[in-house]
């Protein structure tokens, strides 16, 4: 019979200890975690960034990623978007009883790989098991801390008129890859999620300029939503050019089929940077030199008029307002 996670695995007793030792500590080995004290204790100095994120993606495995890698990258990227170098993460599981041990191992393995690539350590964790039906297979929460280098001041409210808007690559792959695996919607596509830790990309960018004004990763709600957030927070308008936004033909095709707009589709390995015009060229060059920024492009600029608005010049030369995502993007009927 296949091994499954049981309610007793979350009880704090022997089975629970076994699970922690065998499944987690071994795979994620590092001295801080191995102590198994109530808290991870470490020294840090400087300006810190601290963030948390819960992950409830369904299905838990999809082309190009899984919930484990997502839980690491999500928090790493949130730290990186503050300009911080991500260092330590916590990892908490809420497991629905009956989850296959093999599936859990696969996810822990992918967490291990992701932490290695992102150069972060899991230093503390928690496991709960809930009754069947109380969770959807597996939920993961991660929190993380990182250090912000001196002289770096990145915030959503720092965009200034004249700044350039740079996008690190093609949009929409993550959302479409996940949708393609949803029950009842399975369609075949070569697309994989763009899921990636962006710490190294941000480090490369900061190496050439400490004047980056805003960084944000266009996750849920897509590019359109985060541009609106930035325009609102900074009280500026953002003008973007549709033709400059890189989108793969497969994403366009899937979006057409489903009646969705790539601008609103989630990404997990992309970022938007708003930088002073003077620094734009060198930041763009640094981005293109990193694996995760190869197809980076300047997609627009910041203006003073119509604060809070995002306006796009369409490929026909006309212009329209881009609003935030409302509700869930739903496939159309006809």
């Amino acid at each position: 019979m296949e091994n499954r996670i049981l309610l007793t695995h979350g009880s704090g007793g022997k089975l629970a200890h076994e699970l922690v030792e065998k499944s987690f500590v071994k795979a994620l080995a590092n001295p801080l975690l191995a102590k198994l004290d109530d808290s991870a204790v470490f020294d840090l100095s400087g300006k810190l960034a601290f963030t948390t994120d819960s992950h409830v993606v369904s299905p838990i495995f999809y082309p190009g990623g899984d919930i484990g890698k997502l839980a690491v990258c999500g928090t790493v990227n949130d730290l990186a978007m503050s300009g911080a170098k991500p260092l330590y993460l916590s990892l908490a599981f809420i497991i629905e009883e009956g989850l296959l041990q093999d599936e859990l191992d696969k996810i822990v393995n992918s967490i291990q790989k992701a932490t290695k690539e992102a150069e972060v350590e899991i230093v503390t964790g928690d496991t709960k098991v809930v009754n069947r039906g109380s969770a959807d297979k597996l939920f993961i929460n991660t929190a993380g801390v990182g250090i912000i280098p001196q002289g770096v001041n990145i915030s959503g409210s720092n965009a200034r008129p004249g700044d350039k808007v740079i996008l690190s690559g093609t949009i929409g792959e993550h959302g479409i890859a996940v949708l393609s695996q949803r029950q009842g919607l399975s369609f075949s596509t070569q697309l994989e999620s763009d899921l990636a830790p962006l710490g190294s990309l941000v480090a490369d960018m900061l190496a050439v300029s400490h004047n980056i004004h805003c960084l944000r990763d266009p996750t849920r709600g897509g590019l359109a939503t985060i541009l609106n957030e930035l325009a609102e927070q900074s009280k500026v308008s953002i003008r973007i050019n549709e033709e400059k936004i890189p989108v793969r033909e497969e994403v366009l095709a899937a979006c057409e089929m489903l009646g969705l707009d790539p601008l609103y589709i989630a990404n997990e390995g992309k970022l938007v940077a708003i930088v002073p015009a003077l620094d734009a060229t060198k930041v763009l060059k640094a981005m293109r030199g990193n694996h995760y920024g190869k197809s980076a492009a300047v997609i627009g600029e910041v203006r003073a008029e119509n604060p809070g608005r995002v306006i796009m010049k369409t490929s026909l030369g006309t212009s329209r307002i881009i609003d935030m995502l409302v509700g869930d993007p739903l496939p159309r009927i006809c």
Binding site: G259, I311, I321, G327, R332
Partner: peptide, 27 residues
Amino acid sequence: TPEHPVGPCMVSSEGSCSAYYLYGGSF
């Protein structure tokens, strides 16, 4: 609004009100 729709034309992604609201008419 799309968050709090009163009529169906604001709900459906193909509804006129939703298209007017989301794409802002001419700008």
